[in-house]
Design a protein around this nucleic acid. Structure first.
Lengths: 250, 250
DNA sequence: CGAGGCGTTGATCGTGGTCAAGCGCAGTGG
DNA sequence: CCACTGCGCTTGACCACGATCAACGCCTCG
C-alpha cells in the first residue's frame, strides 16, 4: 500500500515526488564513474553533495516541461527518463532516452528547450543551476566534464539526425535496438537480452515512426529470427550480426 | 588571372588552399563578437592569435572527413560550410550549415564524427586542438565559451530532430527558410531577401528530402506568393507570417 | 468480472521517393 | 563566335513505404 500510495502522489503532485537532502550518498553512488562527479575526489564530493538533493519520480511523472524556468540540472541514478519536444498540434519528437549515469538539463538559456518525463520509476540527483555554476568556478574539473558530456551528446545528436533523415523504418529499428544494447553494456549491464522499458509509442516518437510501424517492424524482425521478444520488456538480439548489417554502420 | 589561378588550386589541392600565419588579424575580425574569441581582451587575443592560422577553401573543397584524426578546430569567418554524415551506401545527412562566426570541430574524441566541406568560397581560423587545450588551462573563459556554444548547438540539434522526425516537406522547407533568415539577421545581414547559397541537393540532404521534393516545394510556395525566387541565390520571404504559420512554431 | 491501456494485425490511403525527360546557364573548345 | 558538354534545377508520371483508420486480443488494474 505504501508503494502504491506514493505512485499516486507522483502523478498528482507532478514534478517532484519525493526528495531528501541526504548528507553524502555520493560515496555509495553506483553510477558515479559516468557522471559529472566522476573526476572529483572525496573532499570535492562532499562539496557537491552539499548542493544536491535527490528526486524520485513514478512512471509517467513529468520532471519539467519545455519553456519552464530552467532552475535545476539532474543526474539519473536509476530508471529511464525520456526527453521530448512537441509541435503545437501535438506531434511529438522524443530526442533522447536517459539511463543511470546520464546527465540532464544542460541549457545555457533561461528556460528548458524540451520536456522530460519518467518512463519507469526513476531516481535522480538534482543540482540547483546557480549553485552548481558557483561551484564550477572553484572546481573547473566539473566544467571540463560538462563540456565533455556536451560534446558526446552532440555526436549522438548527429547520429540521430542521420537516422531520422535517411534511414528506413527497418534500419531505424535495428539501430535503436543496438543502441539500447550498447548503452546497457556501457553501464555494466547485460548487452544481449536487452531491456526495452519504453512503449511502442515512445519508440515511434523517437524514431520518427508510428506505433503501428514500430510494432510491424518488431514482428518482422522476430519472424526472421533476428530478434526474440521475451516477457518483461526484454528483447534478445538473437542475430546481432544481422541487426548490425541492417542498421548500416552504427 | 590571379584569382582564377588560385580557385584552380583550391580544387586540385583539396583540404587547404591557402594559409598564412597572420600576426594579429583578430583585432580587425568582423565576427569576433560571436566566436570563441568574444570574451577575450586584447592581450588574450594576442595569445590566441599566436596559435591560430587561417585557411581558405574554394567552393566544394573538403575541410576534413569523418573518421579523420581530429587535429584542429575552426572558426568560420566568411563563406558557408556544410557538415554531413554518410551511410555506407552513400545516403547523406547534412547535419548543419555554418556561417561566419560559427564554430566547428568540437569533438572530444580522437576523430571527427562528421565531414565538412565548403559550400562557397570560405575563410576560416584554424586552431590546433592540443594548443587550444593548453591555452584553455590558462584562460578558462574559453572553456566556458565552448560549453556555451555546445549547449546552443545541442538545442539546435534537438530542434532539427523535431523537424526531421515529425514535420512534413512543406513545414521543413518553411522552417529552413526562416532559419536562414534568422541566422542572417543574427550576424547583422539582411533578414528578408535571404541568401540561399547551397544547392537543392544540399537542402534536401539537410531536411531529409530529395532534390525533387525541395524543388517542388519551393515552386509551390512561390506560386502561392509566400516566397519569391530571385536571381543570385536570393529568396524573398514575401509573406513571412504565412511561412511562420506553415513552419509550426519555429 | 468489467474497463481501459497497450500491442498487434489488416485494409486502404497519401506523401514523398523514384525514374525520366527537358530546360537554362556556364564553361570549353573548335 | 558559337556549337557542345555538363551540371543544377524543374516538371511530369508512376510507385512504394509508412501513415491512417479500424478492429481485436491480451493483460493489468479496479
Amino acid at each position: 500500500m505504501a508503494v502504491f500510495d506514493y505512485e499516486q502522489v507522483s502523478k498528482l503532485a507532478p514534478a517532484v515526488a519525493r526528495e531528501q537532502r541526504d548528507r553524502s550518498p555520493c560515496s555509495a553512488c553506483s553510477v558515479r564513474g559516468m557522471t559529472i562527479c566522476a573526476p572529483l575526489d572525496s573532499q570535492e564530493l562532499t562539496q557537491i553533495s552539499a548542493i544536491m538533493s535527490s528526486v524520485e519520480l513514478g512512471a509517467g511523472a513529468p520532471l519539467f516541461d519545455e519553456g519552464e524556468q530552467a532552475g535545476n540540472v539532474f543526474n539519473v541514478t536509476s530508471g529511464t527518463i525520456k526527453v521530448y519536444k512537441l509541435l503545437p498540434d501535438g506531434r511529438r519528437q522524443v530526442t533522447g532516452f536517459l539511463f543511470p549515469g546520464d546527465f540532464l538539463g544542460l541549457a545555457r538559456q533561461e528556460t528548458y528547450a524540451f520536456s522530460a518525463e519518467a518512463v519507469t520509476l526513476s531516481l535522480l540527483c538534482r543540482f540547483p543551476r546557480h549553485k552548481l555554476e558557483a561551484l564550477m568556478q572553484r572546481l573547473p574539473k566539473i566544467e571540463q566534464r560538462l563540456l565533455s558530456i556536451a560534446s558526446n551528446e552532440l555526436v549522438a545528436a548527429q547520429e540521430q539526425m542521420l537516422l531520422l533523415g535517411r534511414k528506413t523504418a527497418r534500419e531505424k529499428t535495428a539501430s535503436f535496438l543496438l543502441m539500447l544494447s550498447k548503452r546497457s553494456r556501457q553501464r555494466g549491464q547485460a548487452g544481449d537480452p536487452v531491456t526495452v522499458p519504453m512503449s511502442r509509442t515512445d519508440i515511434g516518437d523517437y524514431l520518427g515512426l508510428t506505433t503501428e510501424t514500430v510494432s510491424r517492424t518488431f514482428t518482422q524482425l522476430k519472424q526472421e529470427g533476428t530478434i526474440k521478444l521475451l516477457p518483461n520488456h526484454q528483447v534478445s538480439l538473437a542475430r546481432r550480426d544481422v541487426l548490425e548489417e541492417i542498421a548500416g554502420g552504427f
